[in-house]
Design a protein around this nucleic acid. Structure first.
Length: 648
RNA sequence: GCCGGCAUAGCUCAGCUGGUAGAGCAACUGAUUUGUAAUCAGUAGGUCGCGAGUUCGAAUCUUGCUGCCGGCACCA
């Protein structure tokens, strides 16, 4: 008797062991058809797995995310991998996992594989799908598995087997057809190649074996798959649309900034982009005032001895810090971070426990020699402006300070319309300063504070700063890449290294705790994310040009300028298009320039003292306002930081 | 930094196997005086990323460099 408990709590009893497929069939024919795998007592298994004892089972169908992932896994590990072996017999297979957007396979080849080869590989994959062989799982002993992969010349597979703990005595190997193709795999897989959906190979890239730069660089082939051709097409179309939001295209097109070779990784901010930048800075500056921060400014060029003391010099001794020879004997650094300088300010004069928490902020311009391959428009630059601050506090104040920060960050991100922020908790890295006791305390303190703030986070193991654990507030760019923006970092180490002390209530000297935090992160990166998030169509309060005026014909220009002046005086940034062009044309251009309010001035408006506007994002609807009325409406929109209407 | 790709006018792109550059939009000039996403005509615009090589001749072939793109590694 086998009793199987289903997710809804119902129990099905069978006289003899059953397979997942039989179980699905006993529930319904439709379910049987859609079933791709099962979850048996919390672990994913093949649909053909025999259930021999009482267990909890749920059936994974092809219309769930889990089912999609299993199908993608089969596409990469069975179809793509085999196609690559067919076309490049000497290729050695590494690994082929699924990722959020699809899958990849890493191989080592003598031949160069380029984007142009993808069609050829895809054609081979279709051939394999056409054959539609069955996939079966077999258990091999360690020796058998190694022998199999030795005979197939797959050293990476053997390395994987050799690196598993001795306690693993058996390995699951999936066999396609009758010995046509073998792959080492945890599974589960579809039972037949016939069942894979629509797929497409997307790109070729390099990737280090096991993610380690010391290892061989393999060729990685990215692709994606969906249940239906329609979903695949929709995904590809969505990606195409998303790429149009790329801040590196939109930014220069809107005349916000540009880059050029002579200043790699640094931004040439144009008038409009700088307006946006300053708006963000003012916004944060107002928050600082409201949260009892002091704002400071510290030197750009600092003797390297300070960074030796702080520990940065040793940690970043691979050229990340720009070195400047100030004289024959004096070696300085272009400030790569603000913290050591802030401690210098803290260290002037005696500090009492009554001075804590002391919140010190700086819009510090930091320069880091980021590797050329990591540079990415505004999202990763060599010269950036952090909205940085350091909070010097007592251990007892940590929790309340972090709670305040979490609330502040939530509040700020909400103002930009980012309501579902991903928070990562990064704990101690391998390369670090400070004792394990101190790390235990720091990590615990940060976790407690997260709980108190009601933050949910995911663990990002080993990714903390070298001086302490950190929280990262992560936003995504237009093609779904993660970027760390805000951060809160706990530091029990640097105050001691740099001799920061305060006099506690007992009259003794003590090191304060330092909390490093940035709200937006770097203003450059945050601006880039904003451009992509809004596709250049910013909320009114951020828009570098807020209202544009065009006369119907040339004689209306004078009035257009007069109105523009009136709106300037009311605090708006304006634009006037005096050109002798049709208004259709001028409207079109203002829309392309993402000017939120587009005003057309003709005889009627002049007579009536009104403005007729068209709001970007609201189609061709026009509304006529009294001038003061529109000013009030727009001021309201600025004050409430309303998000822009998005229907384009 | 590593793997692969790319670099032609302000922008988007064409230029086949080598015969020394072409379109649309933008710009400029003129005509048009126009009511909500492209008015018409004309003019001008390029050391084909930079350097070397092969060749009678290079945007095109080879090579070195620089930058950019996609990944990987890195990310205070």
């Amino acid at each position: 008797m086998v009793n199987i408990t289903l997710p809804d709590g119902s129990v099905r009893s069978f006289d003899a062991p059953v397979t997942g497929l039989e179980l699905a069939g006993s529930i319904g024919e439709g379910l049987k058809k859609a079933a791709v795998a099962i979850t048996l007592d919390g672990t994913q298994k093949d649909i053909t797995t025999t259930i021999t004892k009482d267990s909890e089972v749920s059936i994974i169908t092809n219309s769930t995310d889990e089912g999609l992932e299993i199908m993608r896994h089969t596409v990469t590990a069975q179809v793509l991998a085999r196609a690559l072996k067919n076309l490049y017999p000497s290729a050695k297979l590494a690994i082929g996992p699924t990722i959020d957007s699809g899958f990849y396979y890493d191989i080592s080849t003598e031949e160069k594989i380029t984007t142009e080869d993808l069609d050829k590989i895809e054609a081979e994959m279709r051939k394999i799908v056409g054959e539609g062989l069955d996939i079966t799982r077999k258990e091999y002993t360690r020796d058998e598995a190694i022998k199999l992969f030795e005979s197939r010349n797959e050293p990476f597979k053997i390395e994987i087997i050799n690196d598993t703990p001795e306690s693993e005595t058996h390995f699951g190997i999936y066999e396609q057809g009758d010995g046509v193709f073998y792959d080492l795999c945890r599974g589960p897989h579809l039972t037949s190649i016939k069942k894979v959906g629509a797929f497409k190979l997307l790109s070729v890239a390099g990737a280090y074996w096991r993610g380690d730069a010391k290892n061989e660089m393999l060729t990685r082939i990215y692709g994606t798959a969906f249940k239906t051709e329609k979903e695949l097409k929709a995904y590809l179309r969505m990606m195409e649309e998303a790429e149009k939001r790329d801040h590196r295209k939109v930014g220069p097109a809107l005349d916000l900034f540009h880059f050029q070779e002579e200043a790699q990784g640094q931004v040439f901010w144009h008038d409009k982009g700088w307006k946006l930048f300053l708006t963000l800075q003012d916004y944060i500056r107002n928050k600082l005032a409201a949260h009892n921060y002091q704002e400071v400014n510290t030197p750009q060029l600092v003797d390297h001895s300070l960074y030796i003391k702080s520990g940065h010099w040793e940690k970043f001794s691979h050229g990340e810090i720009f070195e400047v020879k100030e004289s024959e004997t004096k070696l300085s650094a272009l400030k790569p971070m603000n913290c050591p300088c802030h401690v210098q300010i803290f260290n002037t004069g005696l500090k009492s426990y009554r001075d804590l928490p002391l919140r010190m902020a700086e819009f510090g311009c930091c320069m880091r020699n980021e590797s050329s391959g990591s540079l990415n428009g505004l999202l990763r630059v060599r010269s950036m402006t952090q909205d940085d601050a350091h909070i010097f506090c007592t251990p007892q104040q940590i929790e309340s300070e972090v709670v305040l920060l979490c609330e502040l960050i939530k509040d700020i991100y909400g103002d930009f319309g980012f309501n579902d922020i991903v928070v990562k908790f990064s704990d101690r890295p391998e390369m670090r300063v400070g004792s394990d006791d101190v790390w235990d305390a720091a990590e615990q303190a940060l976790k407690d504070a997260c709980d108190a703030a009601g933050l949910t986070w995911t663990l990002n193991p080993g990714e903390g700063a070298f001086y302490g654990p950190k929280l990262e507030f992560v936003l995504k760019d237009c093609i779904g890449r993660d970027w760390q923006c805000g951060t809160i970092q706990m530091d029990f180490n640097m105050p001691g290294r740099l001799g920061a002390t305060y006099i506690n209530e007992q009259g003794e000297k003590e090191h304060p705790v330092m909390i490093h935090r940035a709200l937006l992160g770097s203003l450059e990166r945050f601006t880039g994310i904003l451009i992509e998030n809004f596709a250049g169509h910013f909320p009114l309060w951020l828009a570098p040009v807020q209202i544009g005026f065009s006369g119907v014909i040339e004689k209306h220009n004078e009035h257009a300028y007069k109105l523009a002046k009136q709106f300037e005086e009311a605090g708006f940034s304006t634009f006037v298009d005096p050109r002798n062009e049709k208004i259709n044309y001028k409207i079109r251009e203002m829309a392309h320039q993402k000017i939120p309010y587009m005003a057309i001035i003709g005889d009627r408006e002049i007579e009536e003292g009104t403005v007729t506007i068209r709001r970007l994002g609201e189609g061709n609807k026009t509304t006529t306002y009294k001038v003061e009325e529109l000013i009030a409406k727009m001021q309201e929109e600025v004050v409430t930081k309303a998000l822009p209407p998005m229907a384009e």
